[in-house]
Design a protein around this nucleic acid. Structure first.
Lengths: 220, 220
DNA sequence: TAACTTTTTTAGACAAATCAAAAAATAATT
DNA sequence: AATTATTTTTTGATTTGTCTAAAAAAGTTA
């Protein structure tokens, strides 16, 4: 099985993420949007990825990732998330500063490097956004999660991840004090606009729009 | 001033290293040898580097690095050596395992990353081979050095660097116990073949061929 | 100096990754 | 169903980095 180029790895990762997001078949436009490249470039790349048999590509009907492709994508995701842990825990990067750099670091090809990095970081199971880090075989220990907006009134939980991890969103969360790991309780849900009132760490009460709450994942 | 691509950075680094090695003008063949590419590819790259004004390129007469080029090369070298320190000190890599990986890591472009890495490593001044790490302005604090083979009998010194840092050479040094930082004393010099007998850390006596001793640098 | 050797460059090709513009296929709407 | 709109692919170009084979320049030697 041939190796993937860095660009191919990036595309495959994006395809994996989109297809995990519930949709069955991933469209060219979706990929183009996430990759910030033109649809024409995507078509070209899909042909190549199809030839390497990491995706199943039927023209005009989008793509499905193969088992091989999934394995490879998870390897890249593993590397990406380990580097994120490194950047945040060791180099004091903030949540929203890690993405770009990790996108570059994830393509460094050295098995030993990743093994040692993993060990050095104490075999972390989650990245700074709370997303799980696949093991070297691509297995993920997933925890059950629910969007904060779907929580019932008076239930408690712990913030474990965010869906939207854009810089602006992460900054906003940090500002209001809703960090990963925070124990929260849903105090009230406003029917009118779907916004919520939550208690953070039994100390602070904060309000969140439905939009924001929908992007915060909670473990019960 | 335009940015350099990773490949351009690598070529420039090699050109810098060769031109520091005493020679005035760097030849296409020298570069081709170090880069493991064909002379034709080198000619092509030299044209591009010339256009970006990081080297002065006169066809058929080799190249000289410009001041701008020197600055850029030193930045790459700084990154390379910082990563080497990281790999050896934090991830327990051995001397001879760091090169390839550092050659990839050195191209990651993030100023913050390098600043923080530097800080995290405690602002090291030398890499694991004893070579000095340029500061962020490209300044190097160089120490006076001499090849072990040029040392006078009965003088003492400290091993601070190696010229040849090939995997085989580094392994050999490690094996005989001549590590970077070792305090040594030259006990005897054999006129016949130029080999030397040295005392390491006042404990162990070892022999070295002229060839090996010529590649070990000592600070008096 | 003339002939030979070595080094370097040029010319032409190719793969990867991108784009813009045009064409084709699919989807939506009247 | 026919037309319109959207999505996707194709075509042709460009840049980067590499190669082989051929040509040109420089260096060496008889």
């Amino acid at each position: 099985m041939k190796q993937l180029t860095p660009a191919e790895e990036s595309y495959l990762k994006v395809i994996y993420h989109i297809s995990e997001g519930g949709k069955r078949s991933v469209s060219t436009n979706d990929i183009s949007f996430k990759m910030k490249t033109k649809p024409a470039s995507v078509s070209d790349m899909l042909r190549r990825l199809g030839e390497k048999e990491v995706i199943e590509y039927r023209k005009y009907y989008g793509v499905n990732i193969t088992e091989t492709g999934k394995k490879l994508a998870l390897q890249t995701i593993r590397k990406h998330r380990l580097w994120e842990v490194f950047l945040v825990e060791k180099l004091r990067f903030s949540w929203d500063e890690v993405h770009e750099v990790a996108d570059e670091l994830e393509h460094i090809r050295s098995k030993l490097l990743i093994q040692r990095l993993d060990e050095y970081l104490g075999f972390p199971k989650f990245d700074p956004h709370g997303d799980p880090i696949p093991d070297e075989f691509g297995d993920v220990r997933a925890r059950p999660r629910v969007a904060l907006s779907d929580l019932e009134v008076n239930t408690t939980g712990q913030i474990v991840a965010v869906k939207d991890s854009s810089a602006a969103f992460l900054r906003y969360l940090d500002k209001v004090g809703a960090y990963i790991g925070a124990r929260i309780k849903l105090l009230e849900k406003v029917e009118f606009d779907g916004s919520v009132e939550i208690l953070v760490d039994n100390k602070k009460t904060i309000f969140m729009s439905k939009d924001v709450a929908g992007n915060v994942l909670v473990m019960l």
